[in-house]
Amino acid sequence: MLKVPQYVDKITPYVPGKPIEELERELGISGSVKLASNENPLGPSPLAIDEIAKHTGTLHRYPDGGAYALRSALAKVHGVDIEEVIVGQGSNELIDIAIRAFQTPGDETIMGSPSFVVYYISSAKSGGLPVQVPLTKDYRLDLKGMADKITSKTKIICIANPNNPTGTIVTKDELGQFFAGLPDNILVIMDEAYYEYAADSASYPDSMDYFRDGKDILILRTFSKAYGLAGLRIGYGIANKTITGAMNKIREPFNTSTLAQMAAIAALKDVQHVRRAVEINARGMAWLHKELKALGIDFVPSHTNFIYMDLKKNAMEIYNRLLKLGMIIRPMGLADTTTIRVTIGLPPENEEFIRTLKEVL
């Protein structure tokens, strides 16, 4: 019988948020609300939708395997060389490519815990040694603790800023101190999937400063969140040519579709749409904070489009009861956890979440 490698056998697969269609099919209900996957409830820019329609007649052709037009647009926006830009199926794929490119079996990849689970999976599945560092008491990445874990085997450090699932950030000063003491030959993956929601914070660092200083940094951003293109799976990275060159050597050909590339180019142009999405999110966040305080529920102040909260009750039980009422949220951690993560929706969706939460509590 075929034997699965031990390092693969130990991996717990990534479990995505439950699709609305699946829930409604199972329970025979309609009108469900999904606040589980940190999607933009406003949807994509009308410019992106129009661009998709323009290119449906070319679907019998392979996409541009190098995504030249999209990379050119991104290079112009960020003031970098086109060879310093790489695109992928969301930032997820680029995390995986980077870890496979620079981590060999037995090497260590350092990450926070809890943080984005893909770091652990990508490191473990290639025979690496994921090193998880607990968050601080205020649910933020412990950069000092992560630096203390560096050994001769350390090849990669993953920093989610803002962090998923807690929504917290590391500050300019903290990141500066971290890089000042960082040894050479370690790749820092700055995962900024929620960048647009955090960028206006006075204490949020500009990771491009470290790129310009020549650090071995891979900055990752995505069109899945604030740009509302999650269903097209498109994200990008910025790094020096040594890093992008190595990643391109193992990147799958045609890894992003024509429609995804064209929609992303159009979405980049619609600055007003992204600004509106961020503003709607901020208002929804403030309203939910007020309601959660009234219910006496502990939550972590967030720089993203989701809230991490502690119900002080079995989260899986609450999750399953909410499902029966057509409300999809995200329980966090193991079966006995008490924490959940809830995406900020449009006002009626936020109101429905509070109503159903009150009912099950």
Rank of each mutant, 00 (worst) to 15 (best):
V4D: 10
Y7K: 00
D9F: 11
P16E: 14
P19N: 13
V33A: 00
K34H: 11
N38W: 07
N40M: 03
P41M: 09
A48I: 08
I49P: 02
D50W: 09
H55Y: 08
G57N: 08
Y62M: 13
P63C: 04
P63I: 02
G65F: 06
G66H: 14
A69P: 08
L70D: 05
L70M: 01
R71V: 02
S72W: 06
G79W: 00
V80S: 01
I86F: 08
I86H: 10
G90R: 08
E93M: 11
I97T: 04
A101M: 04
D107E: 12
E108A: 13
I110C: 06
G112M: 08
S113R: 10
Y120T: 12
I121P: 01
I121E: 00
S122K: 08
S122E: 14
A124M: 06
S126H: 14
G127R: 02
P134A: 14
P134K: 09
L135Y: 06
Y139R: 11
G145N: 03
M146S: 03
M146V: 06
D148M: 06
T154R: 04
T154A: 03
K155Q: 09
A160Y: 12
N161R: 05
P162F: 10
G167L: 03
T168Y: 08
I169A: 15
T171W: 08
K172F: 07
Q177L: 11
F178S: 04
D184Y: 09
L187S: 01
L187G: 04
Y194T: 15
Y194W: 11
Y195D: 12
Y197N: 09
A198M: 04
Y204K: 09
M208P: 12
M208V: 05
Y210Q: 01
F211A: 13
F211T: 05
R212G: 11
R212K: 08
R212P: 10
D213Y: 06
D213H: 09
D216E: 15
L218S: 07
I219V: 05
L220H: 04
R221E: 14
T222S: 15
F223R: 02
K225M: 14
Y227F: 12
Y227R: 09
G231N: 01
I234D: 00
I238R: 00
A239M: 10
A239E: 07
K241S: 12
I250S: 02
P253R: 00
F254E: 00
T258N: 01
A267S: 13
L268C: 02
K269F: 11
R276A: 15
A277S: 15
V278L: 09
E279W: 05
N281Q: 11
A282Q: 13
G284S: 09
A286R: 07
V300G: 00
S302L: 01
H303R: 14
F306G: 05
F306T: 13
I307N: 02
I307C: 03
D310N: 06
K313R: 15
A315M: 01
N320C: 06
N320T: 05
I329M: 05
G333V: 03
I344W: 07
G345Y: 01
P347E: 03
P347W: 05
P348C: 05
E351N: 13
E352N: 13
E352M: 12
E359H: 10
V360I: 04
L361N: 08
